[in-house]
Simulated scan of single mutants.
Amino acid sequence: MAPTPVFFYSHGSTMMLGEQSSSADFWKQCGDEALAHNIKGVIMMGAHWDATSDRLEVAMNPSPGKSPVAYVHPSKYVNYKLEPDLPTGNRVLAMLQDAGFNAHANDKFEWIHDTYLILIRMFPEKCPPTTIISMNARFDPHFHMKVGSTVRPLRNEGYLIIGTGGAVHNLYRNRWAPMLKYRDNFAQETPPEKWALEFRQSVEDCFTQNRGPALRRAVTRLMKHPQYRDAHATDDHFVSACFVSGAAGDWEDEEQEKGRLGAETWELTNMCNSQFMLGSWPGSRTAAATA
């Protein structure tokens, strides 16, 4: 089986679950294509769950709840049934342990909006079997790249690998007033600031101009970018991009087409939600859309 595509999604604010956008349209399109190709399940790393010390954790709660989502009506998510994939979770756990990671099962983890927001948008009718891997709180880019590399073989079995975080995601530098006053997360009273535009462009260049191991080097190197700390006050929304680079950056992936920016949605003036697809489905291409 040809390897499935890999995705890096910027999930943005919680309101991305409730409001329509080109990013939401792209997520749905990607989900439809995944179902058309009969994926076996989804392997995800988000931005809101990290394990301390040198640990990794794999979500193994058979009946997980959902953390509440601010500024979104409960009807958008409370009745969506989550489908934890425990057999694949055990496989992923064994793969990580065999690769030398201090990986453990977490049978109490409640799912957070960074992952189920994406699943609801991609697969609104039914959640596919899903395995969630935590980050590690040391946020080492090469560590997380290796995690992606470790689970990469599952692409050849029909699993979809997704990282969710943010291209530009600094909560301290967003303009919150339109959202707090008027529930308008897409208001742009002023253009994005220069640092946000600069880093956003660098993220696009890395994902769209590199393949194979060059992709891994380019993405992990972004954490040394002069505007990185402006764009990411904390590292949690970026290391899932390093995870994705590991899953899509093998020598074999040099034969794939370059990554593509599928959609982009700006929120809160300085938050850039870029959506990237790495690789392609056999015989098809995902049309690009921007907003």
Rank of each mutant, 00 (worst) to 15 (best):
D85Y: 11
D98I: 05
L82D: 03
P74I: 04
P87N: 08
V92K: 00
G100N: 06
L82T: 03
A103Y: 03
D85Q: 03
D85S: 11
H104D: 09
G100Q: 06
G89N: 02
N90C: 09
N90W: 09
A99Q: 05
R91E: 11
M95Y: 01
L93T: 01
Y77W: 14
E83D: 14
E83A: 14
K76E: 14
F101N: 02
S75Q: 13
P74N: 08
E83M: 12
K81F: 08
N90R: 13
M95R: 07
R91Y: 05
N102C: 09
P84K: 07
Q97N: 11
A94K: 15
A103E: 03
A103L: 02
G89W: 01
P74A: 06
V78I: 13
N90H: 12
A94G: 09
N102G: 03
R91W: 03
P84M: 09
S75T: 15
G89T: 03
A99M: 08
P84F: 03
M95N: 01
G100P: 03
V78Q: 14
K81S: 13
L86Q: 09
E83K: 14
P87E: 08
V92S: 01
K81I: 13
L93F: 00
P87A: 08
Y77H: 10
L96H: 01
N90F: 08
F101V: 02
G100K: 05
T88K: 12
N102V: 10
V92I: 05
R91T: 13
L86S: 07
R91I: 10
K76S: 13
A103S: 07
V92N: 00
L93C: 00
M95A: 10
A103N: 04
M95G: 00
S75C: 11
A99P: 08
L82G: 02
R91V: 10
K81T: 15
Y80E: 00
P87G: 08
G89D: 00
P87H: 07
Y77C: 07
Q97G: 03
D98H: 14
A99S: 12
D85I: 03
M95P: 00
H104F: 14
